[in-house]
């Protein structure tokens, strides 16, 4: 599943459109939908499940080539700034996980060849937790994490 999803993503990046890839008969319609927004992965309640659905495997190797830039203490869990930078070659995707959130997967970024292994975003965190960045590079998964202490949760009212 993973392989065809990647193939599809590459194809759609190369030709610049879902319609073209589907029209060329490369993929069954269900695959196209699966690639558009990974609803099952976002609904998963554990990091392992989310990763298995998203990348087809939950086996990650810790890597020193990924740096996760996040505050040690976040006063407001509703806005926690997270930066991820990696020097791993041919990075295909960067996913951000917050294990203690109801749904750990916060975001997945799919990078083209030209994009550098760098992203920055702001996420909500329910409580003190690690922030895990999972990077897919050359078909393998690498991860790095950083612990963030949250003094005021970001998912309440």
């Amino acid at each position: 599943m993973n392989q065809s999803r990647r193939t599809f993503l590459k194809a759609s990046l190369a030709v610049g459109g879902v319609a073209v890839a589907a029209g060329a008969g490369l993929l069954a319609p269900s695959r196209v939908l699966a690639a558009s927004w990974p609803d099952k992965a976002f609904a998963a309640t554990s990091v392992k499940d989310a990763l298995s659905i998203l990348e087809g495997s939950a086996d990650t190797t810790e890597s020193k080539d990924i740096s996760v830039d996040a505050p040690d203490i976040a006063e407001n869990g509703a806005v926690v700034s997270i930066g991820v930078e990696t020097s791993l070659p041919s990075t295909e995707s960067i996913s951000i996980m917050v294990p203690k959130n109801a749904n750990p997967l916060a975001a997945q970024y799919l990078l083209s060849k030209d994009a550098e292994g760098y992203i920055n975003l702001r996420v909500k965190m329910r409580e003190t937790s690690d922030v895990i960045a999972v990077v897919q590079s050359n078909g393998k998964l690498y991860s790095a994490k950083k612990s963030v202490k949250v003094t005021l949760g970001g998912c309440g009212g």
Binding site: S12, A107, Q108, L110, S112, D114, A115, I119, N120, V123
Partner: peptide
């Protein structure tokens, strides 16, 4: 040319910020 595709869940903060 598409450079970056982002898939977001509900955990992304209000008035989201993108940087690449």
């Amino acid at each position: 040319k598409t450079v970056l595709t982002c898939m977001w869940g509900t955990a992304v903060s209000k008035n989201p910020f993108i940087s690449f």
